[in-house]
Amino acid sequence: EPLWIRPDAPSRCTWQLGRPASESPHHHTAPAKSPKILPDILKKIGDTPMVRINKIGKKFGLKCELLAKCEFFNAGGSVKDRISLRMIEDAERDGTLKPGDTIIEPTSGNTGIGLALAAAVRGYRCIIVMPEKMSSEKVDVLRALGAEIVRTPTNARFDSPESHVGVAWRLKNEIPNSHILDQYRNASNPLAHYDTTADEILQQCDGKLDMLVASVGTGGTITGIARKLKEKCPGCRIIGVDPEGSILAEPEELNQTEQTTYEVEGIGYDFIPTVLDRTVVDKWFKSNDEEAFTFARMLIAQEGLLCGGSAGSTVAVAVKAAQELQEGQRCVVILPDSVRNYMTKFLSDRWMLQKGFLKEEDLTEKKPWWWHLRVQELGLSAPLTVLPTITCGHTIEILREKGFDQAPVVDEAGVILGMVTLGNMLSSLLAGKVQPSDQVGKVIYKQFKQIRLTDTLGRLSHILEMDHFALVVHEQIQYHSTGKSSQRQMVFGVVTAIDLLNFVAAQERDQK
């Protein structure tokens, strides 16, 4: 057995438009009618409502009807409940999964919650491996369901041993009777949507819809739904939504950006999952974080739909894509998950301010006199920076000697690579993860907040409520011999709460 199987392995699926269902090699399930009293909570997966979006479509000038398939009504709160249950049931049916076995899954959280929910009911041990950027709410729900959680670096490539995929496979090879159901490759993922989600949409719309818009992560949702719609409703256009920084969209030119990270969760990847059939997507749109969270908040405030950030991405694209539809036509959007997962993220004004998705003037509360002053007023001194090749031991000596707790790590040209902190280095040394002679590049981390000289002290204040420091950066445009230009970030300084307090105190003292 291989040590790991690539999540982007070539698909062996034989589905073709027009091929009889009787030739399918898979076990198919028909939607079942729910009894009045459910035998367990797993029976509350599927049969989610279709809700008309009344205000947002009109606000953006849509002539067509805009409908939302509300997947956050599933038992675990997301569309991923469907595939989690289906993968477990299919693994039980073919004898792969037996009582007492362990389920391991690399996930952005929602599939993990679905699997942990099913594992709690069915009696399996469950280990979820997820990147650090995923919300604390997801972690809390997983723990409450009895799952064990392993976190991995957000910026690790999918084929790196440190990625959530790599760590999951390492655990599988170490733990007896453990299984990775593997949402990236498992046919049960798109089949769950082909058999149930798509049929529900067709039934709820009486077979009449002209466009379907869905955000894409593993691709199982859009693949399964689109294949069924292509068979039953061939005139329906399928629109895929991919965040900026991901590479799922086609044509490839759409993916060209210097951005590699994004805040919206559960969609987009740096590889093409095996289950994603991009041939059934008629057109791709890219979405960005700001519009995703703005539209998610709009869905909550104006439509009462308590959905997550990827739902915002989907609707932001839908109001663009559906401009081509006329009166009497219908566009369906998939709202994948609930706001429950993001209470401390985009639902929080403070978080939105820190990330730059909300401006101070958007909030009406009274601010102190210094709130709208610029960061450049602080008069920061030149920063202490270190090269990635310097040793951890030497870096600790320098920081202690100069009285700093942290320093930016830059390359020879001064471009920011990340940050090192005294606390992080000492804990890594004590844990045996690094040696004093190791290069400081081994303990770089990139989960820090950046701020510009033109940003306000109010925004800085919000950042420092949650973080010990902020890195002050400025952009530099560099022209190359080819005539092309590129933008790079340079370090201007490091600012802490002490710097802000000293500035405010000094100004008030001078005024007296």
Results as ranks from 00 to 15, higher is better:
391 T>E: 15
281 V>K: 02
504 V>P: 02
487 Q>I: 11
424 N>V: 12
472 V>M: 12
316 A>R: 14
408 P>F: 05
491 V>P: 05
481 S>K: 15
326 Q>S: 14
359 K>P: 02
372 H>W: 12
474 H>D: 02
361 E>I: 09
342 Y>L: 08
468 H>S: 14
459 R>T: 14
286 K>P: 04
246 S>T: 05
360 E>C: 08
448 F>A: 02
431 A>H: 02
238 I>A: 02
261 T>V: 05
512 K>S: 15
487 Q>H: 14
385 T>F: 08
500 L>I: 15
419 M>W: 11
316 A>L: 11
360 E>Y: 13
412 E>F: 10
382 A>S: 12
439 Q>D: 08
258 E>S: 09
276 L>S: 06
454 T>F: 10
284 W>M: 02
397 E>V: 09
375 V>L: 11
489 Q>D: 02
414 G>T: 12
385 T>W: 02
355 K>W: 07
448 F>W: 15
278 R>V: 02
492 F>P: 12
396 I>D: 10
469 F>W: 09
481 S>H: 14
472 V>Q: 13
280 V>R: 11
246 S>Q: 02
423 G>M: 07
509 R>V: 14
422 L>T: 07
284 W>H: 04
271 F>S: 04
478 Q>P: 13
452 R>G: 11
500 L>E: 02
282 D>G: 15
501 L>H: 09
409 V>W: 02
509 R>I: 07
420 V>L: 13
406 Q>A: 10
486 S>H: 08
458 G>S: 13
483 G>S: 12
452 R>C: 14
319 V>W: 02
279 T>E: 15
300 I>F: 07
282 D>A: 07
428 S>L: 10
265 E>H: 07
271 F>E: 02
271 F>D: 02
481 S>T: 13
261 T>H: 15
400 R>S: 08
497 A>D: 15
261 T>S: 15
324 E>W: 08
479 Y>A: 12
319 V>Q: 02
270 D>M: 02
377 E>R: 06
469 F>H: 10
456 T>Y: 11
271 F>C: 02
414 G>M: 02
497 A>G: 09
370 W>G: 02
451 I>Y: 11
283 K>E: 12
510 D>V: 13
389 T>Q: 02
421 T>E: 08
259 Q>D: 02
503 F>T: 14
329 Q>P: 02
441 G>H: 05
344 T>A: 11
257 T>C: 08
472 V>E: 12
510 D>Y: 15
343 M>G: 02
399 L>M: 15
470 A>D: 05
307 C>Y: 07
327 E>N: 02
321 A>I: 04
480 H>E: 11
320 K>D: 05
360 E>F: 10
421 T>H: 13
258 E>W: 10
308 G>W: 05
387 L>D: 10
329 Q>I: 02
390 I>H: 15
448 F>G: 15
409 V>P: 10
425 M>C: 15
473 V>P: 08
289 D>G: 06
487 Q>S: 11
315 V>R: 07
381 S>Y: 08
401 E>H: 12
376 Q>S: 09
437 S>W: 15
411 D>G: 09
380 L>S: 11
375 V>I: 12
472 V>F: 09
395 T>I: 11
380 L>F: 02
443 V>Y: 13
418 G>A: 10
342 Y>P: 02
474 H>W: 02
271 F>Y: 05
442 K>L: 12
336 P>D: 15
473 V>Q: 08
436 P>G: 10
317 V>A: 02
261 T>P: 13
411 D>Y: 11
308 G>Q: 02
407 A>K: 02
489 Q>A: 11
348 S>K: 12
405 D>Y: 08
446 K>N: 14
473 V>F: 13
421 T>S: 10
395 T>G: 02
302 Q>R: 10
295 F>C: 10
257 T>V: 09
509 R>G: 14
421 T>F: 02
296 A>H: 04
399 L>T: 07
362 D>I: 04
351 W>F: 02
386 V>C: 13
316 A>C: 02
320 K>R: 05
435 Q>S: 10
434 V>P: 11
499 D>L: 05
425 M>I: 14
357 F>S: 02
284 W>V: 02
337 D>K: 02
413 A>L: 13
289 D>F: 02
296 A>M: 06
255 N>F: 06
280 V>M: 10
382 A>N: 12
305 L>H: 02
272 I>L: 07
419 M>N: 10
422 L>N: 09
294 T>N: 05
297 R>A: 08
457 L>R: 02
245 G>S: 07
481 S>P: 02
304 G>E: 15
463 I>C: 11
512 K>V: 14
388 P>F: 06
383 P>D: 06
328 G>C: 15
423 G>A: 06
322 A>Y: 02
434 V>Y: 15
435 Q>Y: 15
393 G>N: 02
355 K>I: 04
404 F>I: 15
368 P>C: 07
422 L>I: 14
278 R>K: 10
445 Y>S: 09
448 F>Q: 15
372 H>R: 02
240 G>C: 15
289 D>V: 02
400 R>G: 09
496 T>W: 02
396 I>G: 10
265 E>F: 02
284 W>N: 02
349 D>K: 08
384 L>G: 07
298 M>T: 15
496 T>A: 13
278 R>F: 04
385 T>S: 08
238 I>T: 15
412 E>A: 13
262 Y>W: 06
243 P>G: 06
344 T>E: 08
367 K>W: 12
430 L>E: 15
270 D>F: 04
382 A>Q: 14
386 V>R: 02
412 E>P: 14
312 G>H: 07
455 D>M: 15
272 I>W: 05
440 V>W: 06
405 D>N: 02
463 I>D: 09
285 F>P: 02
428 S>H: 02
387 L>R: 12
294 T>L: 06
404 F>A: 08
467 D>K: 02
435 Q>G: 15
330 R>G: 02
373 L>E: 13
314 T>E: 02
501 L>C: 11
489 Q>R: 02
384 L>A: 09
432 G>M: 02
319 V>D: 02
404 F>S: 09
352 M>D: 05
353 L>S: 08
352 M>P: 02
392 C>G: 05
392 C>S: 09
251 P>H: 07
350 R>V: 08
284 W>K: 04
363 L>D: 09
395 T>R: 07
454 T>S: 07
505 A>D: 14
302 Q>V: 08
275 V>R: 04
272 I>F: 02
334 I>P: 04
316 A>H: 12
421 T>I: 12
305 L>F: 07
446 K>G: 07
285 F>D: 09
294 T>S: 11
330 R>V: 11
488 R>A: 12
473 V>C: 15
363 L>E: 08
493 G>N: 15
325 L>W: 02
451 I>G: 08
243 P>C: 02
326 Q>L: 02
431 A>P: 15
446 K>L: 11
447 Q>L: 11
500 L>Y: 07
404 F>W: 13
426 L>W: 07
480 H>P: 09
390 I>Y: 14
330 R>W: 04
465 E>C: 15
296 A>D: 04
334 I>R: 09
323 Q>Y: 15
411 D>S: 11
279 T>C: 12
279 T>R: 12
473 V>A: 15
447 Q>R: 12
342 Y>W: 06
350 R>C: 07
302 Q>L: 09
464 L>S: 08
293 F>N: 02
264 V>W: 02
447 Q>S: 09
242 D>V: 02
355 K>L: 09
307 C>S: 15
238 I>Y: 08
349 D>C: 02
391 T>S: 12
374 R>T: 11
332 V>G: 04
485 S>I: 15
415 V>F: 13
419 M>G: 10
426 L>A: 15
295 F>A: 02
462 H>P: 07
413 A>D: 02
469 F>G: 12
509 R>Y: 08
497 A>S: 15
258 E>T: 15
386 V>M: 10
510 D>S: 10
396 I>R: 02
244 E>G: 15
314 T>Y: 08
258 E>G: 13
474 H>C: 15
276 L>D: 02
242 D>S: 10
261 T>F: 15
457 L>V: 10
356 G>F: 02
431 A>C: 07
294 T>M: 06
346 F>G: 02
493 G>V: 11
428 S>R: 05
377 E>S: 11
506 A>T: 13
